[in-house]
Design a binder for these strands. Structure first.
Lengths: 168, 168
DNA sequence: CTGAATTTTCAATAATTATTGAAAATTCAG
DNA sequence: CTGAATTTTCAATAATTATTGAAAATTCAG
């Protein structure tokens, strides 16, 4: 298998993995393409290499910029925008974790807190049982959320490595 | 808000969270329903309470049994199957983590290993660069995968708690 | 065994999500 | 400023995924 085919395989695999975890396939593929590209790429180049439409390429790039895992790169004398990927896996992986936590987990934690509050005073056995279940899930989620924050805000996840050694 | 409404809100929230993470909404809702139900439920009761079809209820239940996060419960003198949820959040959360890791992450790690092997001998600057990128992602993923195994196989994630204290 | 109760399967359909591509908006060299 | 180059938007459409529901398969009380 030549290098080009290997790159393509990487891009496809990455796209499939993204899909399974609720990340748009094109978004994942664009990141993958930029990760394995030696030079910055323009929207037109990305469209061509992934055979996707301009609209799709544009939206995928905006989302990745939004996540903070790719950057714009200005090329002198060229009016087009060029893009490069953040290559430090710790940086971008942690950014994705933090972003998804904030957008998807934290709102759920808030709902759980509300449900906890709403049923705290319920004295029926059924009410007490529900309160207990929700409380446990709420506390568990909150601990994980806090853990994610701590790990992501420590520089380059060195702490996580330290941890790995404690565990293993 | 009364208890019934609170339960419904929990079920809906759980379903929405599942969707965002690539878990079928019905599957997530069935788990949620069983989590907040005081007694074992039959397929018919689940169908009625979630207003989903028999086929959907059946498939969702099978998947949850497959994950090992709900159990069958036999009720004497009743031919129907009844189901209860694993209530220990550590148990079921870790089972989900482990299952998704095995089905979705591990195959990707294997592909990354292949790509690493395929390009190890490439001496072009482009080839070296690709090898380096893939290697980093591969090693990172492998470390995480290993971490997940260790955490999931230690009884009731006590180690994780120990960790939490080291970090925080 | 028998057949009613129950579970499972799966083709058809509905619902959701992703993608296109052309029109509108914006940018910026001259 | 002007207008060509570039980017963005978004309604229409395609692709994917979820759900239904009835037929087939299975189970088990009698």
């Amino acid at each position: 298998m030549d290098l080009q085919a290997s790159k393509q395989k990487f891009i496809d695999t990455w796209g499939a993995l993204g899909s399974e975890w609720g990340i748009n396939k094109s978004v994942a593929q664009v990141q993958a393409l930029l990760l394995v590209s030696d030079n910055p790429l323009s929207t037109d180049e990305i469209m061509e290499m992934l055979t996707i439409s301009r609209g799709n390429a544009n939206m995928s790039l905006r989302q990745l910029l939004d996540y903070g895992i790719i950057y714009k790169k200005v090329i002198a004398g060229d009016r087009k925008e060029y893009f490069v990927a953040e290559k430090d896996i710790w940086k971008w992986a942690l950014k994705i974790v933090l972003m998804r936590k904030q957008k998807e987990i934290d709102p759920v934690i808030n709902v759980l807190r509300e449900l906890e509050a709403d049923t705290k005073k319920d004295r029926t056995p059924e009410g007490k049982e529900f309160y207990k279940t929700v409380s446990e899930i709420q506390q568990f989620s909150e601990q994980l959320s806090l853990l994610a924050d701590k790990v992501c805000n420590s520089n380059r996840g060195e702490l996580l490595l330290k941890l790995l050694k404690v565990i293993m």
